[in-house]
Design a protein around this nucleic acid. Structure first.
Lengths: 111, 111
DNA sequence: TGACATGCATAGAACGGCGAGGTATACTAT
DNA sequence: ATAGTATACCTCGCCGTTCTATGCATGTCA
């Protein structure tokens, strides 16, 4: 990740949910997408993402289906569920509060 | 912690260093201080803090000394070292970048 | 006397990221 | 032909961190 591993924990699943709110995507695509959107700041690994996707699907926050790509590759597309959307909202709010708290403590920012 | 356990990881040590940049403190005091500064948002536990303090001391980022309090209790005060200050700067910068990245991904904020 | 706050500490469980490894296909350059 | 790179999926086991639970000792207050 480039960042301290521990810093990353807890945000990965939330980011996945957020990506899938925009459109359905497949795993490999998400890795590239996140790395691109952050200008290489985030460097997601497949060893992190795939288990994460499986957990989210087991929990009913995502649903997946296979589709063949023009290049002949099989892709597993993920779509967010209603439950996933609710969870995303909850986690996003939690992140805001948490980041706000850390900013107060580290940077002295009020709010 | 109140928050998702995983979200907290990686920030505890940094916050400790930041607190000790202001003045020397003892463990129990830090717990109360953090909980107070965040208005109860953060709920540090002793089982989290003490091992953290020990690690930081082993790593040479903190130094400790015992002192007796007016109430008769023995307190272990911690002071940040020069190495600790450097590490604090590094970690603070890392937090800013990381939080910025997450904000871009989750909230679409540019920067 | 019993509860609660102060103040230190540790052991074990739980959990997520990641390095390393594996499978398979397709395209490109030598 | 063949080696390399990109695409695309996956799993295993290590590691570090937090939390729960527990323990000790003291002082205060109802």
């Amino acid at each position: 990740m480039g960042f301290d591993r521990e810093l990353v924990k807890g945000t990965t699943a939330t980011v996945v949910l957020r990506l899938l709110r925009e459109r359905e995507m497949y795993g490999y695509e998400m890795v590239k997408e996140v790395n691109a959107r952050t200008g290489g700041l985030f460097k997601w690994k497949e060893g992190t993402l795939y288990p994460c996707l499986h957990r989210l699907e087991v929990d009913g926050l995502l649903r997946s289906h296979w589709r063949e790509a023009p290049n002949g590759k099989k892709r597993k597309y993920y779509r967010i569920t209603a439950k996933g959307l609710a969870e995303l909202a909850r986690r996003t709010e939690e992140w805001k509060q948490f980041a706000g708290g850390v900013n107060v403590l580290l940077l002295g920012k009020t709010g």
